[in-house]
């Protein structure tokens, strides 16, 4: 008789993998509650002796992290709201409305996907400078007001909806805008949720755009804030980890709560993006 493991052999692969992926994050949280002495001990400790909050306290007292958090929340909120409104409007326009220049405009939007970020860094900075939004939060949210991905996602979704409902609404005398708002949008909730998650992840985690445009530390987002005090406090690990916890926990908690929605977003990006 063949000898068998008492459990599926897949566990032998998945358990170590899962630990490799999650333990660094666990260590990040635990280290944020350690004292400097504990962190520098040899051999290294994994679990703090008790919950030391000195790292958090120093961070709150010596940096503008509360401000950075509020800035990031504001930037992400504007980005998500603008994305939902503008991309659903454009997606509907491209999917359903007939107007001069539609094909060309859609082609231009699709073509932008090919352009890499490094090509845009220099001219975007110069555009921000001319528009007078260097060193303002606008520099952090303007790049996320709308995206080709968002327009494409919403267009695909609307193309998949049956057109009869809209025709009925038009026959009843609804204007295009009215039909869109009261008939189409309520059906689009899953696509809108996917788009919201995508925009939240991108705008919250963005480092490059705020980095090139913002140097006033009152206007920092969390990501540049983290990067900047990493430069000045290379060895204050409990503070650095505390900053990391503050910057990543909102999204991690959101992920744990709405895992299904996050995974749907990643899948959509992969299969249709």
């Amino acid at each position: 008789m063949r000898w068998r493991l008492p459990f599926s052999p897949w566990h032998l692969l998945l358990m170590p993998l899962a630990l490799i992926f999650v333990l660094p994050l666990v260590q990040m949280v635990l280290t944020s509650f350690m004292t400097a002495q504990e962190i520098n001990q040899f051999p290294p400790k994994f679990i703090p002796s008790s919950l030391h909050v000195e790292g958090y306290r120093a961070l709150l007292a010596e940096t503008h992290i509360v401000r950075w958090f509020a800035n990031t929340v504001l930037v992400s909120t504007i980005a998500v709201v603008a994305h939902l409104v503008l991309c659903s409007l454009a997606g509907y326009g491209f999917a359903r409305l007939r107007f001069a220049g539609r094909g060309l405009a859609f082609l231009a939007v699709v073509a932008t996907v090919m352009i890499p970020i490094q090509l845009l860094m220099i001219p975007t900075y110069l555009m921000f400078a001319r528009a007078g939004i260097v060193d303002t939060l606008a520099a952090a949210f303007v790049p996320w007001l709308a995206s080709a991905f968002g327009i494409f996602l919403m267009r695909q979704f609307f193309l998949g909806l049956p057109v009869e409902l809209e025709e009925a609404a038009t026959l009843d005398g609804c204007s295009t805008l009215r039909t869109f708002v009261s008939v189409v949008l309520p059906l689009a909730r899953p696509a809108l949720a996917t788009l919201a998650v995508f925009t939240l992840l991108s705008s919250w985690n963005d480092l490059l755009w705020p980095l090139i445009a913002i140097s006033d530390d009152n206007r920092f987002t969390l990501q540049i804030g983290l990067a900047s005090f990493q430069g000045t406090r290379r060895t204050e690990w409990s503070q650095l980890m505390a900053g990391n916890v503050i910057a990543t926990m909102p999204l991690i908690i959101a992920f744990l709560v709405a895992q299904r929605r996050f995974i749907a977003t990643m899948t959509f990006t992969g299969l249709k993006g």
Binding site: L17, A18, L19, F21, V22, P24, L25, L201, W204, N205, L207, Q223, I224, L226, A227, N244, A247, T248, L251, I252, A254, F255, L256, Q259, F262, I263, M266
Partner: peptide, 13 residues
């Protein structure tokens, strides 16, 4: 959950 969660953390963090 364990394998997907790092994707949510920012590259900076």
């Amino acid at each position: 959950t364990c394998i997907f969660v790092p994707y949510v953390a920012s590259a900076a963090a």
